[in-house]
Deep mutational scan, measured.
Amino acid sequence: QVATSTVRILGMTCQSCVKSIEDRISNLKGIISMKVSLEQGSATVKYVPSVVCLQQVCHQIGDMGFEASIAE
């Protein structure tokens, strides 16, 4: 089973930030795809909930120095 959710990301300033986040999160087990939008300050994450949760994704992004939260 696959889920798609949006994560809000604060602190991104350039495409390099976007690429860094996409590269790191895409390597997590259970992540199918991730598309980060600098303009919208968010990311669309396609993932397998039984393998990885959005809290883990937000935590990983937080470790990179950005502020991440699950969009309502």
Rank of each mutant, 00 (worst) to 15 (best):
I70Q: 05
V51Y: 06
I25A: 01
S5A: 15
C58H: 07
V52A: 04
A3V: 12
I9F: 04
A71P: 13
S33D: 08
R8F: 13
K46G: 04
D23R: 13
Q1G: 11
L28Y: 06
C58T: 12
V57A: 02
K29I: 10
C53A: 10
T6M: 14
S37V: 06
H59E: 15
M64T: 01
T4L: 11
E39R: 09
V45L: 12
K46C: 12
Q60D: 10
A71K: 09
K29H: 09
V36T: 03
Q55M: 12
V45C: 05
T6A: 06
Q56S: 09
G30M: 06
H59Y: 15
I31Y: 02
T44M: 11
G41L: 10
Q60M: 15
V2I: 11
V2R: 02
L38I: 06
A3E: 12
G11H: 04
G11L: 06
Q40H: 15
M12P: 00
M12I: 05
V57P: 01
I25L: 07
R8L: 10
A71G: 11
V18F: 03
I21E: 02
I21S: 01
C58L: 15
M64I: 07
Q60T: 14
T13I: 11
E22L: 07
E72S: 12
T6C: 13
S42V: 11
V2N: 05
V18H: 01
C53N: 14
G62L: 11
V2S: 09
S26N: 12
H59A: 14
A43S: 04
N27V: 12
T44P: 02
S26I: 10
I9V: 06
L54C: 04
F66Q: 02
A68C: 15
R24I: 06
E72Q: 12
Q56P: 01
R24V: 09
S42C: 11
I32Q: 03
D63M: 15
C53T: 15
S5P: 04
T13S: 09
V57M: 03
I9H: 01
G62E: 15
S33C: 07
I61Y: 04
L38M: 06
A3R: 13
S50D: 10
F66E: 02
I31W: 03
D23M: 10
S42Y: 10
V48Y: 15
V57Y: 04
V36I: 11
A68V: 12
A43P: 03
I61R: 03
L10A: 10
S42T: 12
E39N: 09
P49I: 07
D63L: 15
Y47D: 01
T44F: 12
A43M: 07
S37P: 00
E72R: 06
E67H: 12
V52Q: 04
V18T: 06
P49F: 07
Q55C: 13
D63A: 14
S50C: 05
L10V: 13
P49V: 07
A71R: 07
D23I: 10
S37N: 12
K46A: 09
I31Q: 00
Q40E: 11
F66T: 02
C53S: 15
E22S: 05
I61V: 04
R24Y: 07
S69K: 08
T4F: 09
I9L: 04
T6W: 12
T6R: 14
I32L: 11
G30N: 01
I25D: 01
V48H: 15
S42N: 12
G65N: 03
G11T: 03
S50A: 11
L38Q: 03
S37M: 07
G41M: 10
L38E: 00
E39V: 10
T6D: 06
I31L: 02
Q55Y: 11
S33T: 07
G41I: 05
G30T: 05
G30D: 01
K29V: 13
G41F: 07
Q56D: 14
E22Q: 08
A71N: 13
S69Y: 13
L28E: 03
V18C: 03
